[in-house]
Design a protein around this nucleic acid. Structure first.
Lengths: 135, 135
DNA sequence: TTATCTGCAAACATTTTGCAGCGAG
DNA sequence: CTCGCTGCAAAATGTTTGCAGATAA
């Protein structure tokens, strides 16, 4: 059903090596820099199939770009992502799940699902930004 | 700073008349059907300025399209949207904001922002679904 | 009058797709 | 050997922008 090609394992390797969420294009560049050229279309196709299989997490940045990451946590969880460098922390939000369920019930909604992501500027990027502003 | 043009008020009128979230392109079509032609670019520009001024809420559908809606609630709030009919309830989530801020601080992140939307099946659509299943 | 807004079309950015050839199984 | 995978370039999508002319104030 799914062949193991040089390209597919190259993409998987990069996803294992990189910690943060990266766009398809960034991954494509990384692969090129590594000397393992993989067509951009193939990167997209591979990421999509990995995402379908639940092997990578996908989310969309504020400007509508899809970013991918191999997550440690397997089940449902949320992310706190640096909007500058993409550094990501996986977090649990039990209180949020409870609240979501309550809200749903309160308005007569069933099968409540939710999306929730946190964005911020990580300590390192914040420091860099302040330095640049001369403050 | 902001002129009141025929186009701008036409867009505002449509936003007042429509209850659910609509994409720029859908709004553009509605305007055309009403006979008040407004250029697509103008629709985009107007929606953007309304969004900047906090007069409309914007959120992104699963397939990356931006959808707009005039919300009753003025400040920051979330939505509980029916995944079947699109009916939307505006909700507050003070506990979520607090939790988000805490999480950010805990990991050394600044300027924490968050996205959070709830999806479910509203009472009416749930009833209809059950009826169709014959249960 | 004049600075802003509009409409059009062209530009953009990201993602998808058609197709001929390559290569894993 | 075969059928799925790959690469390329072209297409699709949603949104933005440059510019000349229209228009609100």
């Amino acid at each position: 059903m799914q062949r193991m090609t040089r390209q597919r394992s190259a993409v998987a390797d990069v996803l294992d090596a990189v910690e943060d969420f990266r766009s398809a294009q960034q991954l494509h560049e990384i692969l090129r820099d590594r000397g393992e050229g993989v067509g951009l279309a193939t990167v997209y196709r591979t990421l999509q199939s990995l995402a379908d299989g639940g092997e990578v997490d996908v989310l969309r940045t504020a400007d509508g770009e899809s970013v991918y990451r191999r997550c440690v946590r397997r089940g449902h969880h949320h992310h706190l992502m640096c909007r500058v460098c993409g550094a990501t922390v996986e977090i649990d939000g039990p209180s949020v799940e409870t609240w979501a369920a309550q809200m749903g019930a309160q308005h007569g909604f069933e099968d409540i699902d939710h999306t929730m992501e946190l964005f911020g500027t990580c300590a390192r990027c914040a420091a860099e930004g302040h330095r640049r502003e001369g403050s």
